[in-house]
Design a protein around this nucleic acid. Structure first.
Length: 210
DNA sequence: ACATTAATTGTGT
DNA sequence: ACACAATTAATGT
């Protein structure tokens, strides 16, 4: 457990910081589907992701929700990092896409570390940069691509996260992530199946030829 | 093994 | 987008 943490983060942080993280951080497991942060939540701790995937969602005023991007092991959420300083409310929602292992860090320490440790500052800027880029990508594909292309990138992401060709998901869940309707997704998937790019099963999809 | 039901998926308008 | 049909999985008898 803590071994996993070391393995994942030792390359990122200088030894002194690693020691602090281990002594002050709280190791925690979470189940897939758990909401880590909802819209308007205040940040109480900063989670370093040891294993698993978190999905970051954004909703408009009408409550239409879309998937922005995923967080992977070795990362943390940029929004939490920003919010913990300024006592700002979260503008995004974070949900466990898979089962997770986390190291929870107390917010009080974050500011101290950013003055004390260069490796923490580097980690922060990396986090901001990567997630800003991911958000740009999300905007690009929403603005310039048709739904069928969005669906394809979505499926490719899912395949990567699952690390296998079978992805367990319903058409409705896909529709929610892409802010579309179930019927539309079903029809697009059917088309992909007819092109032999995917194989539709009950409750899951085969992505072998994707 | 069979019937019932709920959830998921397919299709026509 | 909506309504309804068909299929599949889960559960109880």
């Amino acid at each position: 457990m803590v071994e996993n943490f070391k393995k994942r983060f030792r390359p990122l942080f200088q030894p002194a910081l690693m020691e602090e993280l281990e002594s002050v951080g709280v190791y925690k497991k979470m189940d897939a589907g758990t909401t880590l942060m909802a819209y308007g939540d205040y940040v109480r701790s900063v989670p370093l992701l040891i294993s698993g995937t978190i999905k970051i969602l954004r909703a408009d005023d009408a409550g239409n929700e879309i998937l922005l991007y995923f967080l992977n092991p070795g990362e943390t959420c940029a929004m939490t990092l920003v919010c913990c300083n300024g006592h700002k409310k979260s503008e995004i929602k974070a949900v466990a896409e898979t089962d997770l292992e986390l190291m929870l860090l107390p917010v009080q320490k974050i500011e101290e570390w950013s003055t004390k440790y260069k490796s923490w500052r580097n980690f922060s800027s990396e986090t901001y940069y990567n997630q800003l880029m991911n958000a740009f990508k999300a905007v690009d594909i929403m603005a310039f691509s048709k739904l069928d292309e969005r669906l394809l990138t979505y499926l490719k992401n899912k395949k990567e996260i699952a690390a296998q060709n079978q992805v367990k998901i319903t058409h409705q869940e896909i529709a929610n992530d892409l802010n579309s309707s179930r019927v539309v997704i079903s029809r697009l998937l059917k088309k992909l199946e007819q092109e032999d790019r995917i194989e539709l099963k009950h409750n899951y999809i085969n992505l072998t030829n994707l």
